[in-house]
């Protein structure tokens, strides 16, 4: 297992390199002047300052050299200063990451917790009302824009009926991470962030469960007189989980994009909202840093996913 993890980590290097290269090229290929991007909102900048910054940014050097220098800077954790807040971009980003992770992890648990039972039910009650209901939910859940669901949630459950707060992490005056107040604030964003995932999982699981159920060894288990629940729990689920773990990749990718929307709708002070606000005020170093950090997190999540995959499916180890 150790070797598997090590190999997977090494494989991530070219991917990360690709992310950095792409981010770099985007800023250099665009028609916007990078110096201007760096100086947005600064009123008293002389031509001299501009020339100086041009030189400091190394814009007078060939592209590959610029890229290498930029990488060197990043390696020293220097992501530049936020134009808007005059603080290191990396600090701003890192202080938001835990908030986003809390939201994502909870939504993830929620998806697995609700999605797997739904998938099993759909398979076991194949062709009956439960199956059809779950299918309809799946298809509709895919088709509704997330921000739309979020806005409706806020309007109905927070503004018209005061069941939930309109957003943010805590009531003013409370400051806690593991408490009822936080849980109360998490309901809306977690629910909306999970919908697409919950719509996704049962469909995959249903097919797999159906396929596994028809396999010989399940029939054998059943004929041995094991109860239906035991058969499902032990044999079917274990095997059907493999593709489910694979689908976590999609769910993860979806999360990072969904967050941007959900955090704005629910005023959640996470990475997504920071990035959005930075983008609105053209705070380029922050947006660039956020992309790099979000991608790194995503690559790490993929690695964890693959480790889980190797753990669920022993065949991987053999390879």
């Amino acid at each position: 297992m150790g070797r598997f993890i090590a190999r997977r980590l090494v494989q991530a290097i070219p991917t990360l390199f690709g992310v950095l290269l792409l981010t770099f090229l985007l800023s250099r290929l665009s028609p916007s002047d990078p110096v201007k991007l760096m100086l947005y909102g600064n009123t008293e900048v002389t031509q001299e300052d501009r020339a100086q910054l041009y030189h400091a940014l190394g814009l007078d050097k060939p592209l590959p050299v610029q890229f290498a220098e930029w990488l060197w800077q990043l390696a020293h954790l220097d992501f530049g200063n936020s134009i808007y807040y005059h603080r290191p971009a990396l600090d701003l980003i890192l202080e938001r990451v835990p908030n986003s992770l809390q939201l994502s992890l909870l939504a993830f648990v929620f998806i697995v917790g609700v999605g797997i039972p739904l998938g099993v039910i759909a398979a076991l009650r194949r062709g009956r009302i439960e199956d059809h209901g779950i299918r309809v939910f799946s298809v509709v859940g895919h088709a509704v824009p997330e921000f739309w669901l979020g806005l409706i949630f806020v309007l109905t459950f927070a503004v018209q009926n005061r069941w939930f707060p309109i957003g943010s992490m805590n009531v003013v005056g409370t400051d806690c991470t593991l408490c009822w107040d936080r849980a109360w604030h998490l309901v809306g964003p977690v629910l909306v962030l999970s919908i697409a995932g919950i719509a996704n999982l049962p469909r995959i699981l249903r097919t797999e469960v159906l396929e596994v159920i028809s396999q010989d060894y399940v029939r054998t288990a059943r004929s041995k007189g094991l109860s239906e629940q035991a058969v499902v729990a032990v044999h079917v689920l274990r095997n059907a989980l493999i593709p489910v773990v694979t689908s976590f990749g999609t769910i993860l990718l979806l999360f990072f994009s969904g967050q941007l929307i959900i955090e704005r709708v629910f005023n959640w002070p996470g990475l997504g909202r920071l990035t959005f606000e930075a983008a609105v005020s053209k705070d380029y170093p922050v947006v660039q840093g956020a992309i790099i950090i979000a991608s790194t997190l995503l690559i790490l999540s993929y690695i964890i996913r693959d480790i889980a995959y190797a753990w669920v499916d022993p065949r991987i180890k053999v390879k």
Binding site: F256, L260, T275, L298
Partner: peptide, 8 residues
């Protein structure tokens, strides 16, 4: 490309 969140 799969490792960069699309909306970002």
């Amino acid at each position: 490309l799969n490792s960069i969140p699309r909306l970002y």
